[in-house]
Design a protein around this nucleic acid. Structure first.
Lengths: 343, 343
DNA sequence: TGACACGATCGAAACGTTTAGATTAGCGTT
DNA sequence: AACGCTAATCTAAACGTTTCGATCGTGTCA
């Protein structure tokens, strides 16, 4: 900028005024400056600007795993929204790990992001401290957090799973296996509650041997399913609390020589683009990813626009049960059904 | 930092020296400073540091679409690699659009990223200018670019498609539909060449009516497939040049009342996690995503570590044909085969 | 005892912006 | 002709670091 000013024979202040439109500058000088900018190929240094202005026009986004299609979609929507608003997005993956997440958030705050969208954080206390320390607006995604009073976008997880399990019960299933993610984050807790309540509402027992825990990955779903399928009295249906784990479930079913839905029904949380193209077409709980991403972005953009003092806003969205053909009604001999379907 | 210095009754220079270990500071002062840092809750301002140092420890990464599972995986690998090295990653999605990509790269350069990984850029000239202007190391991914002489990681696209098409020919297919992405990026060009050469090597004609173009999205695959299937003499197999489009292909096949592989065989570029769990299990060309991501990250990290003057390195990796059951041999009546397979 | 090296600490300039406040010139009013 | 007003421009301080060179004891050696 100094260089531009010298070439245009003006002061840096005038150059700055022209670039930012913060003051009127005469036509002659404007032209000289613009010419100099073009000649030199000058680009404003955003770092210096950030230092002076105290704002980076960058936000931080942390998700557990970008390969989970739910988060992939949400990241995509959020990225687009901030792109439109002229913000850059720094993306971090926490790998479902608390320490990693902690590090990531610190990394982002060190870089002076203007705001933070955090999906699925583990520990309320740490987050709370971080949020309080750095005076930066935070939006929590897919997670409520005790003691952290900030904008939040979540799904009504409990209700969604309640509906899905009730659907299975209505089909005639009595022993329904449930594969949960680790319990220290609220969605997993709520989903499990939905499972229990659906069983109880139908007068069915909640049996611990039917409940397994995994760490969200495919391999965890695989192992959990293997355990469920080798039970003395194995379940007739399995519900997986997230998407990567259901891949493991399907692989385990295949490896053990069973098939879905003939031998065992499967449903899971989170829809994905392929679900209605391949067989079996998985019955899923679809989250409104577009809305979730947009709402989260809007909440943060609103804070960034200056609306700092509004009370925390908590948005709860509804999931939708996408009924396909991976769950079969219990009762009639299977052969007949399969025939008539494939005809 | 000034505040810390005042509280510890030392100069800012000493605080800086202690924090960075750039000079020895006596035990007493060290202790006073550390205490002050703790008391105040001081965090070094990375922006100010970046301004002074001329380095942000941040890299820019642009991909066409993060929802394409190939790019999702690559992004994930790259993110992890840079995370380990203490770099943050700014992610941009170009939406397969040239102007968008241009804007994104400018945005990233304005923010003084230390390096850039660009996947699938469209126009060589623009990129070249940008790369030359900003004196920043660039790694090209999934794309060679005429006139831009920089580190590159690509797949041997031509060979990979050649092998896939040859596989279909060996199965007895003679009329093989091909759905390409738009032609102005090198992978699409090379893949098409692989298609043509495989046909020619087998003495088969290259028929234009069997070749369709789309813009990488599901809907494009859908439309292209609809056209192919309504041909007077429709193809017995379809190869889709990318992954999202093949979803459209499968949906079109379903909507038109056909089934795969019974009525039509399907194969595509890019593997995805679900491909061997659901039916039909899609035959795909799998890219070594892990290796691609790691190599790209390593190339850039090496430049960032100071190795600026080494000549551009071009890495070409090999794809792998994952043969599953979405392509059937032509000839014998289908019933018998399906029976024996499902038994 | 003086010269000198060395280790610890500090002062101040620099990175490239923004911006408050000072300065200047031009112009109409009285 | 003196005055004040406005618009255009400039000067210089600030943002929070890093780092070069200066300063100041202190101990060592001749």
């Amino acid at each position: 900028m100094l260089h531009v000013a010298q070439v245009a024979r003006v002061s840096v202040a005038t150059v700055s005024a022209l670039i930012n439109g913060t003051a009127t500058v005469s036509p002659e000088l404007s032209q000289r400056i613009e010419q100099a900018i073009r000649d030199i190929g000058y680009k404003r240094n955003a770092i210096a600007r950030s230092l002076k202005m105290g704002t980076t026009r960058t936000i931080g986004l942390t998700v557990p795993h970008i390969t989970n299609p739910f988060f992939t979609d949400v990241v995509s929507v959020i990225q687009q929204a901030f792109d439109r608003a002229g913000y850059a997005v720094m993306l971090c993956c926490t790998d479902e790990d608390l320490n990693t997440q902690d590090d990531q958030i610190r990394l982002l705050l060190d870089r002076m992001v203007d705001g933070l969208i955090v999906a699925r954080v583990g520990d309320g206390a740490i987050l709370k401290r971080i949020v309080d320390d750095a005076n930066v607006p935070v939006v929590l995604l897919d997670r409520v957090c005790e003691g952290v009073d900030t904008d939040t976008v979540v799904l009504d997880n409990q209700r969604a799973v309640f509906d899905a399990i009730t659907y299975l019960i209505d089909l005639g299933h009595r022993r329904i296996g449930y594969i949960s993610g680790s319990f220290d984050i609220s969605p997993m807790h709520d989903r499990m509650t939905g499972y229990r309540e659906a069983l109880q509402a139908a007068g069915l027992p909640v049996e611990n041997e039917l409940i397994r825990f995994g760490n969200f990955h495919e391999v965890d779903g695989y192992n959990a399913t293997m355990q469920l399928l080798s039970l003395h009295d194995r379940p007739s249906a399995i519900f997986s609390a997230n998407n990567p784990m259901v891949i493991g479930t399907m692989k385990a079913i295949r490896d053990i020589g069973l098939s879905c839905p003939e031998d065992i029904s499967v449903a899971c949380f989170d829809d994905f683009p392929w679900s209605d193209v391949f067989q079996p077409q998985l019955t899923t709980v679809a989250q409104p990813v577009q809305a979730i991403g947009e709402q989260a972005a809007n909440l943060l953009l609103d804070r960034l626009a200056g609306n700092r003092d509004a009370p925390p806003r908590k948005l709860a969205l509804k999931g939708r049960l996408m009924i396909r053909n991976s769950c079969r009604p219990l009762g009639p001999p299977l052969g007949a059904i399969a025939q008539s379907v494939s005809a």
